[in-house]
């Protein structure tokens, strides 16, 4: 076990989830290092999103283990997993359209998360400064007061990334962050991700190969719930099995 000696942020071992006998994820093992950007690619139905669901607790594992900084996540409550430092962005931009950009970010600010804590929560300068800081990073610094439903699709994606950033997670999981974005927006997003990942690990599910090449440190190719290949982008691109099931199309 060479792996055990290294300092992994996230280690997944023998993870299996079965939906009525269909194994969406089948005996999967995956290790993400600290400050690594790992991208998961693979054909539709390979189980990529399910892996993210399993980590954040949206889906419960049938067997196997997910350890984050030494804590077992498979039986933890969703809110507790978030408090451990795991942030998750959904595939479609999940933002609160009836609230303003400021209020969207404020809800993700990691204070006042209990019922009475939120009743007594005060919007002080520390909160305002932090929200301003994050909104500048996600290119929305001058749109804090606009209702979120007026944002463009790309801006909504950035807003949700910002909502994760403000939580300052140690593991950031992004499900297709550039889907539906224009070329210019993709470039901006790649820059954004490279900037914000300096002090955290990132797990990205993505289809856009150009984008993957721009950001990935290492790539994991999944197929039918299993790891097909793993390594640098050059390595997996040259892998015959990968070409056959995914890239060759």
């Amino acid at each position: 076990m060479i792996n055990a000696q290294k300092n992994f942020a996230l280690s997944i071992e023998g993870l299996t989830v079965s939906f009525d006998g269909f194994k969406a994820v089948n005996d999967l093992s995956l290790y993400v290092e600290e400050q690594e950007i790992r991208v998961i690619i693979g054909p539709n139905g390979a189980g990529k999103t399910t892996v993210l669901d399993l980590i954040c607790g949206k889906t419960r594992a049938t067997s196997g283990s997910i350890k984050f900084k030494g804590h077992e996540l498979t039986r933890m409550k969703e809110a507790h997993i978030v408090q451990q430092g795991v942030g998750r962005k959904f595939q479609n931009p999940s933002i609160y359209e009836d609230l303003t950009v400021f209020e969207n970010l404020e809800i993700s600010y990691p204070k006042g998360r209990s019922v009475f804590g939120s009743l007594l929560f005060r919007r002080d300068d520390v909160v305002k400064d932090k929200i301003q800081e994050v909104s500048d990073v996600i290119f929305l610094g001058d749109m804090l007061d606009s209702p979120a439903d007026l944002l463009s699709h790309g801006q909504k994606q950035w807003l949700e990334i910002g909502m994760l950033l403000i939580q300052d997670p140690e593991l950031l999981m992004l499900d297709e962050p550039v889907a539906g974005m224009s070329v210019a927006e993709r470039k901006q997003t790649a820059e954004l991700l490279n900037r914000i990942t300096e002090d955290r690990s990132v797990l990205v599910v993505e289809h856009d190969m150009q984008f993957v090449e721009d950001i990935a440190h290492r790539v994991t190719v999944m197929h039918q719930g299993k790891v097909l290949s793993e390594g640098s982008m050059e390595h997996v691109k040259a892998d015959e099995k990968v070409i056959e099931v995914y890239l060759g199309h």
Binding site: C56, K58, K77, E78, A79, V82, Q83, G87, R88, F90, S94, I95, Y96, E97, D98, L99, E103, N104, E106, I107, S108, P110, G112, R113, S114, V115, S118, L119, L120, F121, R123, E160, M163, Q167
Partner: peptide, 30 residues
Amino acid sequence: ITKSKLGRILVAMREREDRVRFSGYDVSNF
């Protein structure tokens, strides 16, 4: 209550319950 953060969390929950849950809140308590 409407003007507190709790009020805005309720609105957020009404729209995207999962997003609130995966932002670290125990939605059922609210």
